[in-house]
Computed example of a mutant assay.
Amino acid sequence: MEDQALKWWHVRWGLAGRIISRFAIVSGKLIGLLFLVGAVGWGVLYLLQPWLSSQHLGKIDPQLSIIPVSISNKAESPLSNSNIEHYGFIFRLPNKGIARTIEQTTLVRFPNGMLEFPRPERYEDSLVFASTHNDEHVEKLLGREMLHSQFKLMQVAMLATPEQVKWWRFRSSQNERASLLLVLKFIALTESSPVHALTIRPVYTISSGEFHGFQVGNPDVPPYEARIDLYDGADRHLAFDIWGGEGHGQVLTQEEINAMVASIRPASDH
């Protein structure tokens, strides 16, 4: 009887061992499958990262889908005889402007708002430049020449849109380049007008003499605000903002802005 009982226990332990062994094998296969699925999923996300990030940015800021167009109103209004000097250049002012300078920032007060010439910013202090500086991969995507010209970099970045990044191109250099330019455009638009960031505003290309650049916003329609970024032949960056308090009226017209841009001269000429 004892021998039979012992044999029975051996049989039971053998069956239990086989069950445990099978369970371990099945569990191992399931865990391996889960790891495989996870690895594949991570790989897919890695490949789709440029497209996913661009789509996300596009949802955050619909402004990114807008590309610059040439400004249609090129008329100029008469200006006053008053002018200001800023960053080595002289600007003539519209009528009724009262100017003062506070810590390298020049403010011109008008009845409905302000014309502001911010403190000149060095290229290396710009957030756009900081995002590309000393990065070999960025240099490979954009080219050395573009990274050494503020205007050329902004010119290309402003033409980027989320729609240019295609999911089926995965992490191709074309997709990575378009995604990078879109990020730079997002930074530039936010940096230039943080108060009205993430709002849809028209973007224009402007040009006068040796100056080329961009205007964000239409001063002739609410909220009557605009940002102008200009670059001269030496790639120096000049900028000014038109803004006012909440619910303010029109500060300057497009014709007055056009005339101001056309009036810019090097201070050494005077």
Score class of each variant (00 low, 15 high):
residue 1 M to I: 06
residue 4 Q to H: 03
residue 5 A to E: 15
residue 8 W to Y: 13
residue 8 W to A: 15
residue 9 W to C: 11
residue 11 V to P: 03
residue 12 R to Q: 07
residue 13 W to L: 12
residue 14 G to D: 03
residue 15 L to W: 14
residue 16 A to L: 13
residue 17 G to R: 02
residue 18 R to V: 14
residue 18 R to G: 02
residue 20 I to Q: 06
residue 20 I to N: 06
residue 21 S to Q: 12
residue 21 S to E: 13
residue 24 A to C: 11
residue 25 I to Q: 06
residue 27 S to D: 06
residue 29 K to G: 07
residue 31 I to A: 12
residue 32 G to K: 03
residue 32 G to V: 12
residue 33 L to T: 07
residue 35 F to N: 04
residue 36 L to C: 08
residue 36 L to M: 07
residue 40 V to M: 04
residue 41 G to M: 05
residue 41 G to K: 00
residue 44 V to S: 08
residue 44 V to Q: 05
residue 45 L to A: 14
residue 48 L to Y: 07
residue 50 P to H: 07
residue 50 P to M: 10
residue 53 S to C: 04
residue 55 Q to H: 13
residue 56 H to D: 15
residue 56 H to G: 01
residue 57 L to Y: 14
residue 58 G to V: 11
residue 61 D to Q: 04
residue 62 P to K: 13
residue 63 Q to L: 12
residue 65 S to A: 15
residue 67 I to Q: 15
residue 72 S to Q: 15
residue 74 K to Q: 08
residue 75 A to I: 04
residue 80 S to P: 10
residue 81 N to Q: 14
residue 81 N to M: 14
residue 85 E to I: 15
residue 86 H to P: 01
residue 86 H to G: 01
residue 88 G to L: 05
residue 89 F to R: 15
residue 91 F to I: 13
residue 92 R to K: 14
residue 95 N to M: 06
residue 98 I to W: 01
residue 99 A to W: 01
residue 99 A to K: 00
residue 101 T to F: 00
residue 101 T to S: 08
residue 105 T to M: 10
residue 105 T to H: 08
residue 106 T to S: 09
residue 108 V to A: 00
residue 111 P to G: 08
residue 112 N to D: 09
residue 116 E to D: 03
residue 116 E to Q: 09
residue 116 E to R: 05
residue 117 F to G: 02
residue 117 F to K: 01
residue 119 R to L: 03
residue 121 E to P: 01
residue 125 D to L: 07
residue 132 T to G: 00
residue 133 H to E: 09
residue 134 N to W: 12
residue 139 E to K: 06
residue 139 E to H: 03
residue 141 L to K: 00
residue 141 L to I: 01
residue 141 L to W: 00
residue 144 R to L: 11
residue 145 E to I: 14
residue 148 H to W: 04
residue 148 H to E: 11
residue 150 Q to R: 15
residue 150 Q to C: 02
residue 151 F to I: 09
residue 153 L to T: 10
residue 160 A to T: 02
residue 163 E to W: 01
residue 164 Q to I: 08
residue 165 V to R: 12
residue 165 V to C: 06
residue 166 K to Q: 10
residue 167 W to R: 08
residue 167 W to M: 12
residue 170 F to C: 07
residue 175 N to Y: 13
residue 176 E to C: 04
residue 179 S to F: 03
residue 182 L to H: 01
residue 185 K to I: 14
residue 185 K to E: 07
residue 185 K to T: 05
residue 187 I to W: 10
residue 187 I to A: 00
residue 189 L to D: 06
residue 191 E to K: 03
residue 191 E to V: 08
residue 193 S to W: 02
residue 194 P to Y: 01
residue 195 V to G: 09
residue 196 H to M: 05
residue 199 T to E: 14
residue 199 T to G: 00
residue 202 P to T: 05
residue 203 V to M: 06
residue 206 I to C: 05
residue 206 I to K: 02
residue 212 H to R: 15
residue 212 H to G: 04
residue 213 G to W: 04
residue 219 P to H: 04
residue 219 P to S: 02
residue 223 P to A: 02
residue 226 A to S: 13
residue 229 D to V: 06
residue 231 Y to N: 05
residue 232 D to I: 05
residue 232 D to Q: 05
residue 233 G to R: 07
residue 241 D to K: 00
residue 242 I to W: 00
residue 245 G to H: 07
residue 246 E to Y: 12
residue 249 G to A: 06
residue 249 G to V: 11
residue 249 G to D: 15
residue 250 Q to W: 11
residue 252 L to P: 10
residue 253 T to S: 15
residue 255 E to I: 02
residue 261 V to C: 01
residue 261 V to G: 04
residue 262 A to C: 10
residue 266 P to D: 06
residue 267 A to F: 01
residue 268 S to W: 10
